[in-house]
């Protein structure tokens, strides 16, 4: 199990993010705490999923780890003991909207990070082809993103992030926009890729099932300000597939547990002391009840 072995890869220490929001009545700027006291230690090769109601700061957290946003409220990020000061190729960021360059073909999209890295044209081509094969997009090298389906674009985005070989993958609801069947295929593929490459993954999702299927640890967050409510270890055996999980009773238990954790947030102070409460009932839509 990846949970118990390996050295610490990522150290998040009391991350706090403040946004300044203009109050419509007073016209003054008000502090809005999007992320509070977020500390997490992640071992190498661990798959961490983050779940929480929308607006609880999940994307903010990934932006900070990616180095795209500086946390204004303090805290620090270390990767392999080094302070993170900005974006770099040691982290691959896969965004929800794919964010493929529409003027680049599949192949050239995948090569982008390698260009930044300074890899020669020939080698870029070879590496890109390897990852095109990995995400099963052979034959589509010369297509433009607008000529691909949503699931295929998502795979290009994954290949683009994998191609420059980052040690950490940051994924922000990557499968939220693809249909249910494609999503299952993608999840299974991601599981395969991760077991092959042993990357450290931080995966934000709305779906509890997805979190439990993929992750070694599921971080459950509270809304406003986003804090860690609880971390649930998923001790299900690997390799996992969607098919296995459907038949697993343990899986259902863990899903149920996280679902309850998320729902406790409705009742201020109930069960878990860390819950700050708030009117988020309409925002939590765990797919278990859908």
């Amino acid at each position: 199990m990846a949970v118990d072995e390996g050295k610490s890869k990522i150290e998040l220490d009391r991350l706090r993010q403040i946004y300044y929001i203009r109050n419509q009545q007073t016209r003054g700027l008000e502090e809005f705490v999007a992320l509070e006291e977020f500390s997490l230690s992640i071992r190498e090769g661990t798959f961490v999923a983050i779940v929480g109601p929308s607006g609880c700061g999940k994307s903010t957290l990934l932006d900070i780890i990616a180095g795209l946003t500086r946390s204004k409220g303090g805290g620090s990020i270390q990767i392999d003991g080094r302070q993170v000061t900005g974006p770099a190729l040691d982290r691959g960021f896969i965004m929800q909207g794919y964010a493929l360059f529409p003027w680049r073909t599949v192949q050239r999209n995948i090569e982008y990070g390698l260009e930044v890295k300074g890899v020669s044209r020939k080698e870029r081509g070879e590496i890109a082809r390897k990852f095109i094969k990995l995400v099963e997009l052979e034959g589509f090298e010369d297509r433009y993103p607008n000529e691909l389906s949503g699931g295929m674009r998502q795979r290009v985005a994954i290949a683009r992030a994998l191609a420059y070989d980052p040690e950490v993958l940051l994924m922000d609801e990557p499968f939220a926009a693809v249909d249910a069947q494609t999503r299952e295929t993608m999840q299974d593929e991601l599981l395969k890729i991760q077991s092959k490459t042993n990357k450290t993954v931080i995966f934000v999702t709305h779906s509890i099932e997805e979190a439990v299927l993929l992750a070694d640890r599921v971080v459950v967050m509270t809304p406003r300000p986003g804090r860690i409510k609880q971390i649930v270890d998923v001790t299900l055996p690997r390799p996992r597939t969607n098919a296995d999980m459907r038949a697993s009773a343990d899986y259902d238990v863990i899903v149920r547990r996280i679902w309850e954790l998320l729902h406790d947030a409705e009742i201020p102070g109930a069960v878990d002391g860390a819950a700050t409460g708030g009117d988020i009932a309409d925002e939590i839509v765990p797919s278990t009840i859908l």
């Binding site: 990616a66 795209l68 190729l89 960021f93």
Partner: peptide, 14 residues
């Protein structure tokens, strides 16, 4: 220019 694309490029250290 789509800010998401700028974000994607910057995340790769551009």
């Amino acid at each position: 220019v789509d800010p998401q694309l700028i974000k994607a490029a910057r995340s790769m250290g551009t």
